[in-house]
């Protein structure tokens, strides 16, 4: 299952990456004579209200959606895991200050946060990735902190201290492998959340700008006209759902593969 998922994800990624070469049309090319036509020869997934080829837009949209998913989750992972591990490991005042900071950022309305970023740094799709990652790491930090705190009391961590290990080595070599399960599960949950966030931001005009597309944006457009043109909703919907399913299976597989205790033998 996990292997099949990995293959599907790889195919989707490759298709999106090579969209300019594969796609039959350009993503902004309009054919006003063929507006909102259902799937047919020449337009395998139909066209949208402006006469743009749906398949092409799906391929291009995948670039943004997959990139957002991977980059933002990567950012969230990197910051969240490090931050949470440090906070949980040192405890005391360090922990209080670090976690209250997280609470404060949590309390900030996300949209305002992103608007502020956009105002200060200009509208840039890379910034969008960072902005989303910068919000998603909070939960990751909390999860990792709790896990590390629980590990802190474990005898094998005490044993590691008794060996004279440095703190950095204890955190990264002895603790993180024990936390990998929850991290992976949460990461696979973060990817879809991040893709949806991107759709939401694009809808507000803060993310991807037309005529560029993303899956989230296409679903949103499709949902608006799902009664007349269901294919506009179905195609990106199915693609996104497939991607998310595959990510979940892949996450499960990864966790099992990395958890030495549940591996076969």
């Amino acid at each position: 299952m996990a292997v099949a998922s990995a293959v599907i994800l790889a195919v989707l990624t490759l298709l999106s990456a090579f969209a300019p070469w594969i796609a039959p049309y350009s993503y902004e090319e309009q054919d006003l004579a063929l507006r909102a036509v259902p799937p047919q020869a020449g337009h395998w997934l139909g066209t949208d209200a402006l006469g743009r080829d749906q398949l092409t837009r799906l391929l291009y949209g995948g670039r943004v959606s997959l990139m957002v998913g991977i980059v933002a989750t990567g950012v969230a992972l990197a910051i969240g895991v490090t931050y949470g591990a440090i906070s949980g490991f040192y405890g005391g005042m360090v922990d209080v200050v670090m976690m209250r900071t997280v609470d404060i950022i949590y309390a900030l309305p996300f949209t305002i946060f992103v608007i502020l970023l956009m105002v200060f740094f200009g509208r840039d799709i890379r910034l969008l990735f960072v902005a989303i990652g910068a919000v998603e790491w909070l939960t990751m930090a909390r999860i990792v902190r709790a896990q590390v705190q629980a590990l802190q009391k474990q005898e094998f961590i005490e044993a590691a201290r008794a060996l004279g290990l440095r703190r950095r080595r204890i955190i990264f070599v002895h603790m993180l492998p024990n936390v990998i399960g929850p991290i992976i599960v949460y990461a696979t949950l973060t990817v879809p959340a991040v893709m949806l966030l991107e759709a939401f931001l694009s809808f507000l005009g803060l993310g991807v700008q037309p005529p560029m597309s993303s899956w989230g944006l296409m679903i949103k457009d499709g949902a608006d006209r799902m009664e007349e043109c269901p294919w506009l909703l179905i195609a990106p919907g199915v693609t996104l759902a497939t991607t998310l399913f595959c990510l979940n299976f892949l996450g499960d597989g990864l966790r099992d593969a990395l958890d030495v205790r549940t591996s076969k033998d």
């Binding site: 094998f156 044993a159 008794a162 492998p177 024990n178």
Partner: peptide, 16 residues
């Protein structure tokens, strides 16, 4: 100076 702990079931890191 080295130490051995009470419970060998929990004093080895399960992931290494």
């Amino acid at each position: 100076m080295a130490m051995i702990f009470q419970d060998p079931m929990t004093s080895l890191n399960p992931y290494l």
